[in-house]
Structures are given as C-alpha cells and as structure tokens.
C-alpha cells in the first residue's frame, strides 16, 4: 500500500501550476513517482496528477516547425510513431529503449525530462535535435533550450509553480541522420551505463552540422560542444575515428558508481562515440533515416 496522500486531478493547466506551487508533487505516468513512494523515498502530502490536461497529450509534426510534443506523450506513442522513425531515428531509439513495454505505455517524455536523471534515454536524442522546452507557470510561459534545462542530478530550472508543457523539436535537415547508442549490462530494464546520441548533417563528405550528447557521463545530460565545433566544416575522411572518440570523451565528467567506475566509463565513451558516429554516418550516406 502506498503511503496516504491527498490527490488532485486538475484539467486546467494553471490550476496544476497553483497546486504545484503549494507543494503538491507532480505525477504523470507514475513510473518514477510511484516507484519512489513504494520504496519509501518519497512521502508526499499531496499529489497532483496532470494526466487530465488534454492539450499536454497532443503530439504533432509540421514540416516547418518540426515536432510539438505534449509533455504527457508516452514513450510508447513516440516509439510507434512512423514519422519519428523516418525523421528522428535517434529519438525512436531512445524512447523504444526506456524500461519495458509496460513502463513505456505509462511513462511520459515530459516525466523523463523533469525527473532530471543523467541517464534519461529520451533526453540525449532530443538534445542533438536541438529541442526546446515550453514551460508554463502561474505568471506566463517561457521557452528554454533543453540544453539549459538541467542544473544538477535530478535538478531542473523549473520554478515551484512551473510545469514542462511541450517539447519543440525542429525538423532535421534532409541530408542528416542520427543515432543513439545505449550501453547496458542487460538488454532490457536497465539504465544506461552510458548513452551517446549523434546528429550529423553531411554535404558530400563535409560535416555540415554535428551534435553530440551523452547520458550518464556527467551530473546532467550534456552536449560535447567543443568536439562539435572542432569537427564542424571538416571533411570526415580527414579525421580519425579514434581522435573523435578521445576528443569527445575529454569533455565528459562521469562518476564512479556501483554500475561502473569513472575510468571504465571514459574508456567506453571513446568507443561508443566512434560507434555512434559511424552509425550516423552510414545512415546519412545511405540516404535513409
């Protein structure tokens, strides 16, 4: 039995913001919140279940503005969305590797982001696609780049009264491809020991755009900006894969945990960056995905 709490189920966004400001814990899919409550790590006086807010469930695509994903969109919806597979393959790879079918059926992309875990599978792909967050509070709304959303492990820029409302993902260039590599000890139901996401746009053999993001390689999900800047505009045939791996790993700051040591993660990162880059390259040159 879960500990006792007061449950609110608003259908209005601002009502939900007001309840959150008063201290209610926000719950969407419940795949993190109820786990923490069962384990005794979270004992909220009040929960505000936001699933009744209809327009947070909507996810649409427009060829000019790209994806607009309501924060309550489930991982399963993203996973089964053919357009995501065609245009945002790394996002498909991320969302389809969260937990299990049962977890993805309930767990939401907004919850995955707001939970603030460095290992979040959907976040790295969203980072390399240049996603922005539409945040709503009692006083209005603001747009924040996802790259600036995280301030520490399990910490975000959301103020007490603010909710993540929608995620905006620009359309990828036609000459681009993406990849997400998740490294785990078993193939399912495991957190990313490391995750590498890459977005690559090519003009023949010239790297027109490159974005790299890591999961579980620092206290928050992160971009490897310096490596991206060094490689942008270069001919990919003139750079060794090993150098790309080393350069990118040098930007990471992983910790040692019971899953793996910092040293192991840094060595592994070099390999995974090469693997993700090669995968994205093959997909870009293949002309599909």
């Amino acid at each position: 039995m879960l500990p006792q709490f007061e449950l609110y189920r608003p259908t209005n966004l601002l009502e939900a913001c007001r309840l959150k400001a008063q201290g209610a814990v926000v719950v969407a899919g419940g795949t993190d919140v109820y786990v923490a409550m069962h384990g005794g790590k979270l004992r909220p006086q009040a929960l505000v279940d936001i699933k009744g807010i209809a327009d947070m469930q909507e996810a649409t695509y427009d060829q000019n503005s790209g994806l607009t994903i309501g924060a309550l969109t489930t991982h399963r919806t993203i996973e089964e969305w053919e357009l995501v597979k065609q245009k945002y393959y790394a996002l498909f790879e991320g969302c389809s590797q969260v937990g299990s079918v049962q977890i993805r059926q309930r767990g939401t992309i907004g919850g995955n982001i707001c939970n603030g875990a460095p290992s979040a599978d959907s976040v790295g792909p969203l980072l390399v696609f240049g996603a922005e967050c539409l945040v709503v509070g009692e006083k209005g709304q603001r747009k924040v780049p996802l790259a600036g959303f995280f301030t520490g492990p399990k910490k975000t820029i959301l103020a007490d009264d603010e909710l993540l409302y929608k995620i905006l993902v620009p359309p990828p260039a036609p000459n681009s491809a993406s990849a997400y590599i998740k490294y785990t000890r078993r193939r399912a139901m495991d957190l990313a020991l490391l995750g590498v996401s890459i977005y690559l746009a090519l003009d023949k053999s010239r790297i027109e755009e490159l974005r790299i993001a890591f999961a579980t390689a620092a206290p928050t999900p992160m971009r490897a900006y310096q490596t991206e800047a060094k490689l942008r505009g270069k001919d990919y045939r003139s750079i060794s894969l090993a150098d790309i791996g080393k350069m990118a790993a040098a930007e990471a700051n992983p910790r040692s945990s019971w899953r793996a040591s910092r040293e192991f993660r840094l060595r592994l990162l070099e390999q995974l960056v090469q693997q993700a880059f090669t995968t994205a390259l093959q997909r870009a040159e293949g002309g599909d995905l």
């Binding site: 879960l2 449950l7 419940g30 795949t31 109820y34 786990v35 069962h38 279940d49 699933k51 399963r76 079918v101 049962q102 977890i103 059926q105 309930r106």
Partner: peptide, 13 residues
C-alpha cells in the same frame, strides 16, 4: 488493451 504494471498505477486511474 495495453499492458501496464498494475503496481505502478492507482486504482482510481
């Protein structure tokens, strides 16, 4: 029709 973990869902949901 969709599989879920019934331990992570409230009865009222």
């Amino acid at each position: 029709g969709k599989p879920v973990n019934s331990c992570l869902m409230l009865a009222v949901e």
